[in-house]
């Protein structure tokens, strides 16, 4: 039987697929950029959905991983462009698959360090400490002049993918779609796995999970690292979209925006991140076109959602989750 949620999801996939066609027919290549933004922010939010939706980890520091991924892309590209070696004499690269792997490794390592310390705490402490760590990386990026410091880092040519012309908007959009699809599949696989069950169990009742012999700390640490890796890849794509990275990608506003996305869409729902990203980008485009002060209205809307419509847009369209 097709549930309402499945129906919403199918509609959403069709809508996303329709964007490139509509852009072609209406001759509006800007729509492609909008859809690419939706896919990238959606991917970052998928990572957050694993940690927050399944694991109940409320953090305010995930922009750190988004920014780290972005800086990996930027730094590798600049070194490849200039032909200068990096740390340990390694060369840079302008190939996306390598960049993604490095982004996954670096953000995973950073997350392992931060997670090992912050997951010893919980609740408000966890929120504040993840925020503080992200801020530490943010200030480091600002004060370290080698890669642009406060001004950020531009690389003029988008990185490449074998056999694909990434400079054109459409192929790049399709790459982002593919990665978003991979992220969503990973989310689904994790949710149904033993690991996902343990993670959700740790959210619902930590003591019971511990009593079955599973360490909630280790489960959460793994979730934290997976989350950071996905967010890091999204950050690398985001840098490639703009051909620019700056400390703004690391700032706590970015963390806030990503949480906003997922709450607008629906926390813990499979397509919540995508719905939220779509809604957010459309709001930014539409409200931002009407008024400079669109953030004021975004804030008021967000207040409305938090206080009165807690299921997000998917909750409104598809009803409550069947189990949770």
């Amino acid at each position: 039987m097709i549930t309402r949620e499945r129906l919403v999801e199918i509609t959403l996939v069709l809508l996303l697929a329709a964007v490139p066609i509509a852009a072609q027919l209406l001759n509006e290549p800007f729509y492609l950029t909008l859809a690419t933004r939706v896919a990238i922010l959606g991917l970052a939010a998928v990572g957050l959905n694993i940690a927050l939706g399944l694991g109940g980890l409320v953090s305010f520091g995930h922009a750190a991983f988004f920014g780290v991924g972005g800086y990996v892309a930027g730094v590798l590209a600049i070194h490849a462009f200039n032909g200068t070696p990096m740390l340990l004499g390694l060369p840079g690269t302008k190939l996306m698959p390598f960049i993604w792997i490095v982004a996954i490794l670096v953000s995973g390592l950073v997350a392992l360090g931060i997670g090992a310390l912050t997951l010893r705490t919980s609740g408000v402490y966890f929120i504040m400490i993840t925020l503080a760590f992200a801020q530490m990386i943010y200030y480091f990026a600002i004060s370290w002049p080698a890669y642009g410091g406060e001004d950020g880092l531009s690389f003029y040519v988008r990185n490449g993918f074998p056999g694909v012309d990434t400079l054109k908007p459409l192929p790049f959009l399709l790459i982002c779609y593919a990665l978003l699809a991979l992220g969503l599949i990973l989310f689904q696989v994790l949710r149904k796995s033993r690991f996902g069950a343990a993670l959700q169990g740790a959210r619902q009742n930590e003591v019971r999970v511990a009593a079955t012999g599973i360490s909630p700390y280790r489960i959460r640490l793994v979730a934290f690292v997976i989350w950071a890796m996905i967010t890091g890849v999204a950050g690398a794509l985001y840098a490639d979209l703009n051909r620019f990275v700056s400390p703004a990608m690391l700032s706590w506003h970015m963390s806030g925006e990503l949480i906003v996305l997922i709450v607008l869409g629906g926390v813990g729902r499979r397509f919540g991140p995508v719905v939220g990203a779509g809604l957010y980008v459309l709001l930014e485009y539409w409200l931002g076109g009407i008024t400079e002060r669109w953030q004021l209205f975004l804030g008021l809307m967000l207040l409305g959602v938090v206080l009165f419509a807690r299921g997000g847009l998917i909750g409104l369209l598809a009803g409550k989750p069947r189990h949770g």
Binding site: F60, I259, V260, V263, V267, L298, G299, L302, V306
Partner: peptide
């Protein structure tokens, strides 16, 4: 805490 963080972020 998620609701508190979000609502005060909105503020």
């Amino acid at each position: 805490h998620l609701d508190q963080v979000l609502a005060t972020f909105a503020l």
